[in-house]
Design a binder for these strands. Structure first.
Lengths: 343, 343
DNA sequence: CAATTTCGTGAGAGCGCTCTCTTGACAACG
DNA sequence: CGTTGTCAAGAGAGCGCTCTCACGAAATTG
């Protein structure tokens, strides 16, 4: 007499189990009376369908796997993940789908995760923060498992993805610096084995080219998406070119590192050197001066990821869906915007 | 002829389904020959048990729910959550348990989540970042569902928890400021409806008392765990007492806000005012100057949460388990430590 | 008005697994 | 040599649900 079953609901409602099932699953072909009495019984008993039993017969799981791959996750995206997860969670909630989080922290766990995902325990998979050569999305996709990738997928993988407009955002950032009258604009690159890193670099070059400014590879320096990486890169850049008057950093974390370096070198920001980051994470507001940055809504991205995946699952097709989300430049003190506090 | 079933494994191995099941589940009472032939068949067919079918009969789910409640989650803990999740994930991995993430973003979703959790879809629940009066943990616990809370649980709730040593950490922070010769030490409080906020305040007072310094309520000011909250609080404190020479902020975010305020007021940090934060989040390294802070390992906390919950599930008891994790003061520039870059 | 179609409903099989109960083989005992 | 005990292995029920199929009543048709 613990948890009520469909059987009991049916008995209380005075109908067959089949009819009760139909009502619970919203089948259209059910009489108004039957529907009402079942609904009443459901409420009365506090009935909730047993997922296991349902899965067993439908061969669906009503759950999607969200994979956060190491070690990239640790470095790149910490500040965002919760946002994205929130978005995914929101997008899934309406469908009563559950979010199964898979964080593989070792090659062994990764294998286990892959086995788990390919054995039909989830209806679809959302993948995250991949390095350029990760075979997982392609692999899952070829096994017929619906997959959506957050961010640009690895080269050549023919899978659906949702990405922020990295090019547009970076282009806007560099153009903004140019509009401020800066002419020696350096960039601190992200990892070049990650699509986002590559695209932001390309946008940097495109913006310079569009403005008729000369390209100079020695104004590009980069590495990891970390604070230290940004700091070291800035040190090197200053050493190479003491006349740098602006920097576009491929992430806020790197921009924060660059800020320290500039500070240590006695450069004033933004008077001597203007700087713009990317991500508009929480960090952008906690630096001194506050950091101009390219804003991207990670929650929206999560929501789109969920929607896209649900579509693929519903449609049972293998169509590749691509969604690119707008980014927006937020100008703060570090590139000549008003002082913080306005927010 | 898609995914192989136990039945097929049994047939290939030439034994009964029951025996195959015994082997798969590691029952001791099974002959060596049977065991080997079943194991061979499992490998050959690439058999993986169907979780749904198993759950249906065992009434276990091999999954735990991790609940992140709004709106607290958004404010307080963004930077940590991924760490904690990583820890939980790691702690669960060895047992092949899956992590079901539940982020309720509205009262309606919250109700749905609660129904979901209480209807036996998970074997246990890990709860997070609660406000003082959240009835959920007590509620779940009273329904016989294993629960562990991250952080101090709401007053009066008799549930297991894993917490950082907030008192010890805050005490050490304030004592450190005293050791630096500071005598007018203010504090920026966290929300007083959250246990962590209350405890850190108490520790602040205890440290002053221990050092024989006078208590002065007008040196305490606080609000939300946000940057803006910290900034406003510092503004007020400076107005009240222009002779403040140190500040203990209950979070890094608040400390960062205080830093802006001090900067705007022309106070030098740490020369005029020393400051220590709490959390040692990524923010602590991106402020200028770098921020002394109380370090807590959120990943370890996650791992302990998982262990604790698994113990409770296994033991099937209602014992209340409490774990307190050490915290550690990290001294950086903002309270007289060496300049950044060492790290 | 009989023949047909439509539609709501019920009966019942069966998804893949675990677990109890039973059986059979063999050893130990009086 | 018959009895009891032990232990490995099989038979079979049944977990809660969905879904196909069959059925009877109502609605439609010629």
């Amino acid at each position: 007499m613990g948890v009520p079953t469909l059987e009991e609901v049916a008995r209380v409602a005075g109908v067959s189990r089949a009819s009760a099932s139909r009502v619970v699953n919203g089948s259209p072909s059910v009489g108004i009376q039957v529907r009402q009495s079942v609904e009443r019984a459901v409420v009365e008993l506090g009935y909730v369908p047993n997922r296991a039993a349902r899965s067993l017969v439908t061969r669906r799981n009503d759950s999607v796997g969200v994979v956060i791959a190491e070690p990239t996750g640790r470095i790149f995206s910490d500040p965002f993940f919760v946002e994205v997860l929130r978005g995914i969670s929101g997008g899934l909630a309406s469908r009563e789908m559950q979010l199964v989080l898979v964080m593989s922290q070792s090659p062994e766990e990764e294998r286990r995760a892959e086995r788990y995902l390919t054995r039909g325990h989830v209806d679809g998979v959302i993948l995250f923060s991949l390095h350029g050569d990760d075979p997982l999305p392609e692999h899952l996709h070829s096994q017929g498992i619906p997959v959506v990738v957050g961010g640009e997928p690895p080269r050549g993988a023919r899978v659906s993805y949702v990405d922020n407009d990295n090019h547009g955002g970076a282009f806007a950032a560099v153009t903004h610096l140019i509009d401020q009258g800066r002419i020696r604009i350096a960039t601190i690159l992200g990892p070049q084995d990650m699509p986002a890193g590559v695209t932001r670099r390309r946008a940097y070059r495109d913006a310079l080219r569009a403005a008729g400014l000369p390209l100079d590879e020695s104004l590009e320096k980069g590495g990891e998406f970390t604070r230290e990486g940004g700091q070291r890169a800035m040190d090197v850049l200053l050493q190479r070119h003491s006349d740098i008057d602006a920097v576009f950093a491929a992430s806020d974390l790197m921009a924060a590192g660059a800020l320290s370096s500039l500070h240590a070198a006695g450069r004033r920001v933004p008077e001597d050197v203007a700087i713009v980051g990317f991500d508009d994470s929480i960090i952008a507001l906690s630096t001194q001066p506050s950091l101009s940055s390219v804003h991207q809504s990670m929650e929206l991205m999560g929501r789109e990821l969920a929607n896209s995946l649900l579509q693929t699952i519903d449609a049972r097709d293998r169509a590749v869906r691509r969604v690119v989300l707008e980014t927006q430049l937020v100008v703060r003190e570090s590139s000549g915007g008003p002082p913080t506090g306005q927010n």
